[in-house]
Design a protein around this nucleic acid. Sequence first.
DNA 1: GGCGTGACGGAGC
DNA 2: AGCTCCGCCACGC
Length: 136
Amino acid sequence: MVRSRLPADMHETAMGDEIDDDEARAIRAKRIIEAVAAIPRGRVASYGAIAARAGYPGRARLIGRVLGDAPNRLDLPWHRVLRADGKIGIPPGTAGYREQCRRLKAEGVVVKDGRVPMSAFGLDHDLDRAIWGFPI
DNA sequence: GGCGTGACGGAGC
DNA sequence: AGCTCCGCCACGC
């Protein structure tokens, strides 16, 4: 059993439990998948927000990696994850890009030129409404 | 063990 | 809005 040397997984081993790199990857994937699964239908979140919510702040790129490896499960709303500016992260012209557009529009999310207005569909929208009583 | 790459993000211009 | 850098870091050569 090899202790994980992945820098960001050190907190996993801080309690003294021995884990190898594969297990560390599995834990990361699980947390990230759960965070993605928690995005409500018709709403979107940024890679960075999911990273933070999964316990990996500042590591937005990790989310793209995990989602890229994850199977295209129908029950995993991977399409609700976008760049911070609302743009689709998958390179335009690819099948994945078109699929993401399709799945977003299918649940009422507005996609214009490969971009979603985060102010209207991002989770902050709900937060602002909860705090202020209306979207700001 | 370097090195380039990327489904990122923020700052600066 | 767009375009550099720069920090980030797992992966595959």
